[in-house]
Design a protein around this nucleic acid. Structure first.
Lengths: 342, 342
DNA sequence: GTGAAAGCGCTAACAA
DNA sequence: TTGTTAGCGCTTTCAC
């Protein structure tokens, strides 16, 4: 690729003058300006951003760490962030961690090495200890889709979302209710959705029976592992009095669960009501439509980057936790339940 | 962030010695090696990849240009490519073009500026003229998910996929058959799937009636535009003798079409058989399952990067078009059709 | 209005 | 075994 030096040579000016012209600085004679522009065009000059970064100590690069891009919800996040970043003159280096903490650590170091100006992260586990170490790094970090007590963050109130589902089930008349997903039972990691769900049920004087909590703490990619499917099948094999309504911690898990239920002969939604979380395109497309909690994805991407840019501008900016409202989207997967069945 | 210079100062050695130690070169005394390593650790040294890139003229960066990351199929591609790249010591700069040719052009220039060593691209339109200009750029480019006559490429045989669907429909007994998607009718861009579909039908002596071709050439993001939905609704409003089986050019379009059909009172699959393309997770999850053409995503990502790395290694390597076999995945969206209906 | 020169952090050739 | 030095492509200061 052509360099300023080459243009300078062709145009018979100094390399400094070429720099001035390319960057639109004033104080260059019209004659030379034109000459330089012409040669730049002829040689198809593209500024070397690596050299610029080194010199300016500014990379215009953002790191984006995602736990599982195969999940359509996270793909939408990537979409929103990339778009927003491009509009602000930034490029995205994407790191997919596959929910692997080790990869997450490595990604952060790689991105630091790459001189990214900041990192947007969807952490595998927001309470993981290694995140504390980065706190003192002087590297702007914003957590998205989860509220963080360590960094600035932008997310919906997951607990509130769980609560909405709980009340929805209770409103419909369910009393024997279950949950499918990761959770903080038995030493597992904290899951706000589950806590909110339990709180919501408790407020209606309903208890979440421990037997109806199907814990899935797989760190494997969602769909391919079929972890949820297995756990649900296992649950159905062991329990006589199965719950009539289940809250699955995300849409993907909900669909896996639905498959397991149906393969065991249970009809959805007539015999079992189910709700998911994220309101992905799948929830809308599927028949019956999946009741789910919608998160304002674009807003999360948009504000997430905005907060990050503010931090980049001044690292001493106070951390802020932007909490957005989840919205219950009711579809037939919960409405179609038949209370008159034997 | 700490630099080699700082480590050198602390350790009382020259910066060159620090470089030798960090890069594991031989010819450094054990004493100094340990000293340097210790200070590197203490200062949490991370090599500045920008400086390395500039010096070595090697960025270890790959550009990945995707037309629409919101499409789960492309998200899977990104997943596969990122994984493969990371394993080879490369990072990915992601550019989403939203099927916008202008953005595609800009992305390519941005990536060149960023000194990427090569580009993996899912082109919006593989016959777009601007791609020819990049051909002479000396920049390794590999097209994925489509076969290209300009660059190395890795993809399934889309025409073959269309053909498989055609034969499947005919095997089932359909004679009045339709297509939904972009195509080369009326000056629209070339679509291999459609051509293969038509060829497959012709071989069975069935003609694709022009009225049953629902052309959707939207450049907008797939799901949100609801372009396909509108086109299908429009088709249903105008036609009396609607086809009994439709091939939609991708799963997303198939689902949009299904919604349109159902909203107009047609039952899927009893009254209309439908098949998609890509075999996304949605196809499997949805009830009825969507008959679709499966593409070996991981293989495409894997081989795509492999071919690109070969080109990076030697730009004079011959172009190669790796054509993979599509596979027909039959599900109820086509099997459940009822031929006995009035 | 213009050019010479320093320097961003690093690698590698050369000298000692 | 070690240090000095040039230079990757660029921006910017300084001197003319």
């Amino acid at each position: 690729m052509a360099t300023m030096e080459e243009i300078a040579e062709k145009a018979g000016v100094s390399q400094a003058t070429v720099s001035r012209v390319i960057n639109g600085h004033s104080g260059v004679s019209e004659r030379k300006r034109k000459l330089v522009m012409e040669w730049a065009r002829k040689l198809d000059y593209q500024p070397n951003r690596t050299a610029q970064s080194l010199k300016n100590n500014k990379s215009n690069l953002i790191g984006l760490i995602i736990s599982d891009i195969s999940n359509p919800y996270f793909a939408e996040i990537v979409h929103a962030v990339e778009k927003e970043a491009a509009q602000n003159g930034y490029n995205i280096i994407l790191c997919n961690t596959e929910n692997n903490l080790q990869k997450e650590k490595e990604s952060i170091n790689t991105l630091r090495s790459r001189q990214v100006e900041g990192i947007l992260i969807v952490p595998s586990d927001k309470s993981a200890p290694h995140l504390k170490n980065i706190k003192n790094l002087n590297l702007p970090i914003v957590v998205i889709t989860q509220i963080s007590d360590l960094f600035s963050s932008v997310a919906v109130d997951h607990a509130k979302g769980g609560e909405l589902i709980a009340k929805h089930f209770v409103d419909l008349g369910h009393t024997n209710i279950g949950y499918i997903g990761p959770g903080n039972f038995e030493g597992h990691k904290k899951e706000d959705k589950l806590e909110g769900f339990i709180r919501g049920l408790n407020e209606c004087n309903i208890k979440l029976n421990k037997e109806n909590i199907i814990i899935n703490n797989s760190d494997l990619p969602e769909l391919s592992s079929r972890e949820t499917y297995k756990k649900v099948s296992n649950y159905l094999g062991k329990n006589k009095k199965i719950a009539t309504a289940f809250f699955a911690y995300n849409d993907l898990a909900a669909f896996e669960a639905i498959m397991a239920f149906e393969d065991e002969g249970y009809h959805i939604p007539e015999q079992i009501a189910i709700a998911g979380f994220d309101n992905t395109s799948l929830a809308q497309i599927n028949r019956p439509g999946l009741t789910s909690i919608s998160q304002p994805i674009k807003t999360i991407g948009h504000i997430g980057l905005e907060v990050l840019l503010k931090k980049i501008d001044d690292i001493n900016n106070d951390d802020e936790n932007i909490i957005l409202e989840p919205k219950l989207i009711v579809r037939n997967s919960s409405l179609g339940f038949n209370f008159n069945q034997k």
